[in-house]
Design a protein around this nucleic acid. Structure first.
Length: 803
RNA sequence: GGGGAUGUGGUGGAACUGGUAGACACGCUUGGCUUAGAACCAAGUGCCGCAAGGCGUGGGGGUUCGACUCCCUCCAUCCCUACCA
């Protein structure tokens, strides 16, 4: 009788062993390094399935790389500032700091129970002054490098609670707590000039080993577009309006201009025009989120002001449109209803002229969005869009009414947040003039809240704000994306309280593999890339990019929907870790779907994962390695087949782990190998050659499975006593010579339909194969009396007779 | 509205380079073991059909000897949309 598989006890023992021997603490050595980073979590209190999936992927790869003799660094920490702590603090009357720290404690225990091979000695939390001190320093350095400025921008304002709301706190235009109609309000904020790096952020995407869809999303987000700046003269005024258009070829189709409601001219007009004022106020009843702006009904008002068309000198009306963003381009849109669907919708609604100036080969209804040939465009008629664009730009440049212009969609990064639980922005105001806090005075520490008091914006904490007569402290905190934009670098030097980065940083950076949710494809990853480049330019880090390779995992769903508290469909991973053990949960997560796809949670599949581990246990437990001299063994057909399967599986698993990240198919292959072992090989009476082949299969299975199910494999490895090494010390090698079989199965098709399968020797010629295949009964039947027009042969695979 | 993905049996998924659709699992059915159940073991399991055979990868169309894979088009779901992280 063998011992029963008891994951709970076994896993605890193995984990204690890892911890007391500091197995996963990394330091610089001679081997090739591998920095494997999973996106650190927001400490919400409990691990959710998405975390488990993310961190298992990272751990599998880390363990695999470790077995391949890389010097692996896999740290973990906490993205500890943010809105949820404030919400929880208000709801439960606890201090955000205590709440956060308690959550971290819980989640750390959970992570440990999953058997993740983290180097906990490098742990960091962004809410700790020892971390954000350096963030404040970076901000100061960015400022000194000319990357920081102040400007007004829009926020969601709750007029009842008198607070700024995040987009997610605005529900159907109302504040989530007060229920009051939210207003757009302009306030002064700090910005960082990420747009200085727009070109480089775009270009160096090419050098990254990232999924193409993520690169494409970033490219589109940065949104480089070529076009023209076109200047319109206001009638009876010396004022001008600048517009940007990517389609200067449609300039003869302009029938109106539309200003953003926040454009200075709109505001000026409103001062003397009550109707316009009303309209601007109406526009304020909106939400700052782009998705809401873009889907809102298009509204506009005629300002009564007219401009002169730069070429035709026609008078065109100037409207204000709620769909025009001040932040993009110049905040003025030139309306070409014939060739832009949004302008078309607007013009139809307000009875504005719709002119066709582009024609396609075939008749098409307006609006025509494609490029074509110009019509109704004076001297430019008949030209292609491309030719006309460049000629029109040339003409406008000559007459001083425009010029060629390249525009980015990317906007500068507003980093000010009017919140308590964040990193204080290290600025003081002397007589209203901002000044960076000196390096020696950092960190500016977040003030403690008095017992039981709710978090409040720092502006309401006089002890913090008021420094001296006419000397005030900045009361905003940083966007939490600031915290997460450089943590990957700080992990390497987190033990150093004298310097922000050190020699360890030089050794470990860049991150070789970064793993996280697809939802971070744009913002977090773009900000981190920007930070890295800006830090490089102030001499703090080396290299152009922080993350060499990226793996984006899909969501964990239940019943086709994202798990969320509001839907009440969350599944607590801890319950499953307790019931089945970490190895089963890890195996389930890796087996159920490939990492990049979303994963549908299914309880019964967990059962299946557990069953497989029990089978592995049943095969190995109680068995000891027996040594044989391979030269004395004679392998029969079954032996050779098992060895082929064993070595082929290793080859496949290596490819799946390393190249494809297809852990699901790697596991399926290991399952196949296990199923392939003949029962009599497991018998005590089996021949020496049988036993040798079984030994080999067992060794390979434990090694291949150990990155995914490290506890059970380590335990069985010790018990099996092949060597006295830790299972993670080495990785087996497959023998290419064993992979080739003498025979193959030929698929015989007639007109592309399978009509026969036949086992053939590989040294037959194509002619011989055709002859044999054409004699198969079912093939003969389907060919009948017909003439074979041609046959297509795919070597060692398929033969198709076309009749 | 814009950008990016996904869609294959009852379920999760496989098919890596245009070449056997459904690997590997889950579930289900039948049988074995058992007083019974659980667990375990064995066999079967895309759909229609007695069978021969036909049909089948979200819908429609196309390219090809051959399409889950390439092209066009439509539909559904998910992610992001700059203050959730």
């Amino acid at each position: 009788m063998t011992e029963k598989y008891n994951p709970k006890l076994l896993e605890k023992n193995i984990q204690d062993h890892w911890e007391s021997n500091k197995v996963y603490e990394s330091k610089i050595d001679q081997r090739e390094k591998f920095y494997c980073l999973s996106m650190f979590p927001y400490p919400s209190g409990k691990l959710h399935m998405g975390h488990v999936r993310n961190y298992t992927i990272g751990d599998v790869i880390s363990r695999y790389k470790r077995m391949q003799n890389y010097n692996v660094f896999q740290p973990m920490g906490w993205d500890a500032f943010g809105l949820p702590a404030e919400n929880a603090a208000i709801q439960n009357k606890v201090n955000p700091k205590d709440w956060t720290n308690q959550n971290i404690k819980n989640m750390k225990n959970q992570l440990k129970s999953l058997g993740l091979s983290y180097d906990w000695s490098k742990e960091l939390r962004t809410c700790d002054p020892s971390y954000y001190k350096w963030e404040q320093l970076i901000f100061k350095k960015f400022h000194d490098a000319g990357l920081v400025y102040r400007k007004k921008s829009l926020v969601n304002w709750d007029p009842v609670d008198k607070t700024v709301l995040a987009n997610e706190q605005v529900i159907d235009g109302k504040g989530w707590r007060s229920g009051a109609q939210v207003e757009l309000k302009e306030i002064d904020q700090w910005f960082i000039k990420i747009t200085n790096y727009a070109e480089e952020l775009l270009e160096s995407l090419e050098s990254l080993d990232w999924p193409e869809n993520v690169k494409l999303m970033q490219k589109n987000w940065i949104g480089k577009s070529f076009g023209a700046e076109i200047i319109y003269q206001l009638e009876e005024s010396d004022k001008k309006l600048k517009t940007f258009s990517t389609r200067p070829d449609t300039i003869f189709g302009v029938s109106f201009l539309a200003l953003s409601p926040n454009h200075p001219l709109s505001i000026e007009i409103a001062k003397n025009n009550a109707k316009v004022m009303d309209f601007l106020n109406l526009c304020k009843e909106s939400k700052a989120a782009e998705a809401d702006m873009a889907t809102a009904e298009k509204l506009g008002i005629d300002t009564g002001i007219r401009v002169i068309h730069p070429i035709t000198e026609e008078r065109l009306p100037v409207w204000i449109g709620n769909f025009v963003l001040l932040e993009y381009g110049t905040g003025v849109v030139m309306g070409v209803p014939g060739h832009d669907s949004r302008d078309y919708e607007f013009a139809t609604k307000y009875n504005l002229d719709i002119k066709q100036v582009i024609q396609l080969e075939d008749e098409t209804e307006l609006p025509i969005l494609e490029k074509g040939r110009l019509v109704n465009s004076d001297d430019f008629n008949g030209m292609s869009s491309e030719e006309a664009s460049s000629k029109i730009i040339k003409h406008l440049t000559k007459v001083g009414k425009g010029s060629e212009l390249t525009q980015f969609r990317l906007r500068d990064w507003g980093v000010s947040r009017q919140r308590y639980w964040g990193c204080p922005i290290p600025v003081i105001y002397k007589n209203g003039e901002p000044e960076m806090v000196q390096e020696k005075d950092l960190p500016v520490v977040l003030p403690e809240l008095s017992e039981g008091s709710s978090p409040k914006p720092l502006s309401q904490i006089p002890d913090f704000i008021e420094l001296d007569k006419d000397v005030l402290r900045e009361s905003d905190t940083f966007d939490t994306f600031m915290d997460s934009s450089w943590y990957h670098a700080r992990f390497t030097s987190s033990e150093n309280d004298k310097e922000i980065f050190d020699n360890n940083t030089k050794y470990w950076l860049p991150v070789d593999l970064y793993i996280g949710g697809i939802e971070h494809a744009i913002l977090h990853l773009l900000y981190s890339r920007f930070f890295h480049k800006a830090l490089r330019d102030i001499g703090m880090v080396d290299g152009d990019e922080p993350f060499k390779r990226l793996l984006t995992q899909g969501m964990v769903l239940k019943d086709g929907a994202k798990m969320s508290k509001s839907k009440g469909n969350t599944v607590d991973p801890q319950a499953y870790i307790d019931k089945y053990g970490a190895d089963t949960v890890r195996l389930y997560m890796m087996f159920t779907s490939p990492p990049e796809q979303s994963l549908e949670w299914s309880e019964s599949s967990v059962e299946g994962a557990s069953r497989f581990l029990k089978k592995v246990w049943a095969l190995v437990s109680g068995r000891k390695f027996e040594s044989f001299d391979i030269n004395n063994l004679e392998f029969d057909k079954n032996d050779i087949e098992l060895r082929r399967k064993t070595h082929a599986t290793l080859k496949k698993v290596q490819n799946d782990y390393e190249i494809r990240f297809a852990f699901n198919t790697a596991i399926a292959a290991i399952m196949e190998l296990l199923n392939f072992i003949p029962d009599d090989y497991k018998d005590d009476a089996a021949s020496d050659s049988n036993k040798f082949c079984l030994n080999e299969a067992i060794i390979f299975i434990l090694k291949m499975l150990s990155p995914i199910a490290p506890h059970i494999c380590e335990h069985l490895w010790r018990e099996y006593q092949y060597d006295n090494e830790n299972i993670e010390i080495w990785w087996p090698e497959y023998n290419e010579d064993l992979l080739d079989a003498e025979e193959f199965e030929l698929i015989v098709q007639v007109n592309g339909k399978v009509r026969g399968k036949i086992l053939l020797n590989k040294d037959l010629t194509e002619k011989e194969i055709e002859e044999i295949a054409s004699q198969i009964e079912n093939v003969k039947t389907h060919i009948g009396d017909s003439q074979i027009k041609k046959s297509i042969y795919v070597k060692d695979k398929l033969l198709n007779f076309v009749i």
